[in-house]
Structure formats: C-alpha cells, structure tokens
Amino acid sequence: MDVVALGGFTSIILESGGANLQAIQGTKFTTGNTLTAALIADSLVKACQKWNQPLKDSTLLIIGSTGDIGSACVRYFSNKVKKNTPYCQKSSPTPPARRTTKIRKGQLSG
C-alpha cells in the first residue's frame, strides 16, 4: 500500500470525496497535517518506549493545541496519558505588526 501526503488546499479535494483520486486503487491519501500529527504521535510513543517511560504514567504538554496538528495530538493522546495539558496562546488585541514594532523598540507589551 502506498501513502501520498498532499499539502496546500488539497484537503478540500479529499474532504469532498476526491472522486478523481479514488481511481488510484491501493493508494491512501492524506493531508500534510494528518501525516505530521501521525508522525509526532508515533515518535512520542517510540521515545517513551526507548526511555522506559510508560505513557499512562506521563503528563503531556501540547503547545499549539488548537491548531490542526496540535488538536489531533490532543485527541489521540487523550486516553493514553495520565494527564493531558493542552496549551495555546491567547489572541492579542494588538495586531502582529504593532507587536513586532514594540518589541524592536524594547517594549515587551502587546
């Protein structure tokens, strides 16, 4: 079985049924985000095994937990770890360009 990861706006094609892609039998299609989340999960499981750290006894911090990749990891590990600690940065009322300007001027606000 072959796996093809597609980036950009191809998730729109896949989510709509991807009729043209179904003609390639034996091949599985995924978006880049899905494949990335799967690789992260697999790598974390293997790292815990290597270091003899059982997942069920672990606390997991996922930074960027509201994004596509982070939220997929949160869902995957939700019943596999002792404690799941999702983290996301709150939106700032200051536009990014103004924040950058303030930081360059030595002001850490925004």
Rank of each mutant, 00 (worst) to 15 (best):
Asp2Cys: 11
Val3Trp: 09
Val3Tyr: 12
Val3Ala: 09
Val3His: 11
Ala5Arg: 05
Leu6Pro: 02
Gly7Asn: 02
Phe9Thr: 06
Thr10Phe: 13
Ser11Arg: 10
Ile13Cys: 05
Leu14Gly: 03
Glu15Thr: 09
Ser16Phe: 00
Ser16Asp: 12
Gly17Gln: 01
Gly17Met: 01
Ala19Asn: 12
Ala19Arg: 12
Ala19Thr: 12
Asn20Ile: 13
Leu21Gln: 04
Leu21Gly: 08
Leu21Lys: 04
Leu21Cys: 03
Gln22Cys: 07
Gln22Glu: 15
Ala23Cys: 08
Ile24Arg: 11
Gln25Glu: 13
Gly26Asn: 14
Gly26Arg: 12
Thr31Asp: 00
Gly32Lys: 02
Asn33Arg: 04
Thr34Phe: 07
Leu35Cys: 09
Leu39Thr: 14
Ala41Gly: 06
Asp42Phe: 00
Ser43Val: 03
Leu44Ser: 02
Lys46Trp: 04
Ala47Gly: 09
Cys48Arg: 03
Cys48Lys: 01
Lys50Gln: 13
Gln53Gly: 06
Gln53Glu: 13
Gln53His: 11
Leu55Ser: 07
Leu55Phe: 05
Leu55Tyr: 08
Lys56Met: 07
Asp57Arg: 11
Asp57Cys: 07
Ser58Phe: 01
Ser58Gln: 09
Leu60Lys: 04
Leu60Ser: 02
Leu61Phe: 08
Leu61Trp: 01
Ile62Leu: 03
Ile63Arg: 10
Gly64Thr: 04
Ser65Thr: 02
Thr66Gln: 15
Thr66Leu: 15
Thr66Ala: 08
Thr66Asn: 14
Gly67Arg: 08
Gly67Ile: 01
Asp68Phe: 12
Ile69Ser: 00
Ile69Asn: 03
Ile69Cys: 01
Gly70Gln: 10
Ser71His: 03
Ser71Ala: 01
Ala72Asn: 09
Ala72Ile: 02
Val74Lys: 02
Arg75Trp: 02
Arg75Ser: 11
Arg75Ala: 14
Phe77Ala: 03
Phe77Tyr: 04
Phe77Cys: 02
Phe77Lys: 00
Ser78Leu: 03
Asn79Lys: 08
Lys80Trp: 06
Lys82Ser: 14
Lys83Met: 11
Lys83Arg: 15
Asn84Pro: 04
Thr85Arg: 13
Pro86Tyr: 03
Tyr87Asn: 06
Cys88Phe: 11
Cys88Met: 15
Gln89Ala: 11
Gln89Ser: 11
Ser91Ala: 13
Ser91Leu: 13
Ser92Phe: 09
Pro93Tyr: 06
Thr94Met: 13
Thr94Ser: 04
Thr94Trp: 06
Pro95Cys: 05
Pro95Gln: 08
Pro95Asn: 10
Pro95Glu: 09
Ala97Phe: 11
Ala97Met: 11
Ala97Gln: 12
Arg98Ser: 03
Thr100Ser: 13
Thr101Lys: 12
Ile103Val: 05
Ile103Arg: 14
Arg104Thr: 10
Arg104Val: 08
Arg104Trp: 09
Lys105Tyr: 10
Gly106Phe: 05
Gly106Trp: 07
Gln107Val: 13
Leu108Pro: 00
Gly110Glu: 02
Gly110Cys: 05
